[in-house]
Write a protein that binds this DNA or RNA. Sequence first.
DNA 1: TAGATTGAGTTCCGAAAAGGAACCTGTCAA
DNA 2: TTGACAGGTTCCTTTTCGGAACTCAATCTA
Lengths: 163, 163
Amino acid sequence: MRWEELDRQPCSLARTLSVLGDRWTLLVIRDCFMGVRRFEQFEARLGIARHVLADRLKKLTEAGVLAKVPYQDRPRREEYRLTEKGLALHPALIALLDWGDRYMAGPEGPPVQRRHRTCGHVTHGVSVCSECGEPLDPREMSVEPGPGAPDDLPLPERSGKTR
Amino acid sequence: MRWEELDRQPCSLARTLSVLGDRWTLLVIRDCFMGVRRFEQFEARLGIARHVLADRLKKLTEAGVLAKVPYQDRPRREEYRLTEKGLALHPALIALLDWGDRYMAGPEGPPVQRRHRTCGHVTHGVSVCSECGEPLDPREMSVEPGPGAPDDLPLPERSGKTR
DNA sequence: TAGATTGAGTTCCGAAAAGGAACCTGTCAA
DNA sequence: TTGACAGGTTCCTTTTCGGAACTCAATCTA
C-alpha cells in the first residue's frame, strides 16, 4: 500500500495516521500545546530541517489541525495555532506521553510532569468509558462494523484463544 | 536533529515516538490489538513491504512492545504478541481512533465502532484526571519539570496570552 | 522420492523523503 | 546601504520505502 492511500482506508486509526503518522508531526503538535506558534521557534526547539518543517506545517494547516493567523502586517507575518480539531488531539498526546513516562523514562523518572490546576495534583490521564465511566480494558472491548462500514470490512478472525 | 537521537530527548513524547513514530508502526500495533500475530497476516492486511515489516517487528520486539512466541516446532514458527508494555498502548490507540472517528470519518460515520462489554454500550474513551476523575482540559493543565528533568530543560515561554 | 507448498524472512533496484547548508524576499532600523 | 529578522525555497547528498524476486528449512502430496 502506498502512503497516500491511507486516508481512504476504512479505519479511523489509519485515517488519523495519514495526518499524524510520520516522524515529526506529533512533535510539532506537542510544541503547539506548549505554546509554540512561530516557524523559527519550531525549528529551534525541534532541530528539524526547514523544508520538512514548512511541509508539515502546510499539511497540518490543510488538514485543519492548525490555522495560520496573522500577527502583524508590513511585513505580513503569520503564526500557527491549534484549531478546535487540533485541540481535540490533547487526549491522544496525553496518552502517548503517559506511556512514555511509564515505559521510556530512566530510573530518575519522567523529565516533565503535568499538574491538573483544577485539583492541584500531578496527574496522568486515565481512559474511561464514555457511557459507564469505568476504566477501559482492552479485553472488555469488542470491535464491530460502524455506520460508515463498507461491505467488505476486513475484521480478522482471532487465531486461538483471545489474547 | 537526527531521528536516532530522539530517544535521548528529555521528553516522554519524543521517546515514545522514537519507538512508534513512523508510518507503519502504529498500524502494526492496531492489528495486534485486533488479534493479528503472524508475519503473513500483517503483510496481507497492511500491504506493507516485507522488509519494512520485518524491520518494524524486530524493532518493536527489541523495544519490548511485542514478544516472539513459538507456536509450533518442526518447523519452528514464531508469532508476535503484545507484551504488557504493548497492551499499555491501548489508551493511546483508542484516543487516536476516537479522534479519527470524530474528525476523519465521512458523512456516514466511522467504519468501525467499539462496544464496552462491561456495560454493553458503544463507547469511546474519555481522558480523565487520575487524581480527581474529572475530564482533562488542556487549558487546565500546567507543565513543570519532573523528577528526571535535566538542568537545562527547555520549557518555552508563552508568547502573548495563553491559548 | 521428486516436487510443490508454507512461513518467515533477505536482497536488489529505482523512487521518495529526510538532513543540511545556502539562498531569497519584504520590511524596518542604524 | 548595510544588516537584521521572519519565514520560507532550492539544491545536493544520504536514508528509507515500495515492489518484486530470491532464499531456506521443513513439511505435505502425487
